[in-house]
């Protein structure tokens, strides 16, 4: 459904993504993992065309995203930090987003209701706490029933009840056959929500397979220890590289 092809991205002299290749299939839920600064958010922003790659292309449903804006109506994006215009009220924000997508009439208001956002529609965005803003971001990502959901650290800053609500919603959407992409540092949550694991290390795909085969390969039967093993390997691979460079 999404294929990332030979993406190369530099920020100044720093290579953030190096000849990056990935395929995301509908019906799967992907855990995007990697240390801080490994290029997870950059990858997501490239898929959304907020960041433009130096070379390479991204295909969504077989169509290149270059010069294409319509494909973004199929993507629900929840940013790491949701920032909104200060003077706008929650209700206005919702109606503005609906206004931008006139072709969609059937809104998914589950999260709006579950988070109680429908009772505070006239609150200006700048009065909201960080957690409430996250709730607004989540509600917006699901509102237009998109076929693809990209969630960048979705539960960061949410209270435990809201986390449960959001997790259940993600599970329901996953069962409905949607493509879900989640980045997070909370491994227990990823284990619960995803069936495919992708580990990015220094701008390259270090691991990309199902969670079961991750457990097989590492010989661990717990997700978190398997990931820890993967991280060890990636660091070893790195030291080997530097050793070689010294020869």
């Amino acid at each position: 459904m999404i294929s990332v092809r030979h993406i190369h991205k530099k920020f100044g002299k720093l290579d953030v993504l190096k000849d990056f290749e990935l395929e995301f299939q509908a019906g799967n839920s992907y855990a995007l993992m990697g240390p801080n600064g490994s290029g997870k958010t950059t990858l997501i922003k490239i898929i959304l065309a907020m960041v433009l790659p130096n070379s390479g292309d991204v295909l969504v449903n077989g169509q290149s995203i270059k010069g294409n804006t319509a494909y973004r109506s199929q993507i629900g994006y929840m940013p790491q930090i949701g920032r909104y215009p200060d003077n706008m009220r929650i209700g206005q924000l919702f109606s503005m987003m609906q206004d931008i997508r006139p072709e969609i009439k059937d809104y998914d208001m589950d999260l709006v209701k579950a988070f109680g956002l429908d009772t505070m529609l006239d609150k200006p965005m700048h009065t909201l706490s960080g957690g409430t803003r996250q709730k607004v971001s989540a509600a917006l990502a699901f509102m237009f029933r998109p076929a693809i959901l990209i969630l960048d650290e979705p539960t960061a800053g949410l209270d435990p009840i809201a986390v449960e609500v959001l997790k259940n919603k993600i599970k329901r959407e996953r069962e409905a056959g949607k493509l879900i992409l989640i980045t997070s540092h909370i491994l227990s949550e990823l284990e619960e929500l995803t069936n495919q694991a992708i580990y990015i290390f220094e701008g390259e795909v270090f691991f990309n397979d199902s969670v079961e085969s991750l457990k097989d390969i590492t010989g661990e039967n717990k997700f978190s220890t398997a990931i820890a093993r993967l991280m060890e390997w990636s660091l070893k691979k790195n030291t080997k590289k530097t050793e070689l460079a010294h020869v």
Binding site: L48, A49, M50, T69, A70, Y71, R72, S73, I75, Y77, P79, R83, Y84, P85, M97, I100, R101
Partner: peptide
């Protein structure tokens, strides 16, 4: 000051 709004819009189906 409006960078947030700009970023929000860029993730939407608009040019």
């Amino acid at each position: 000051n409006n960078l947030e709004f700009t970023e929000l819009m860029l993730a939407q189906p608009v040019k």
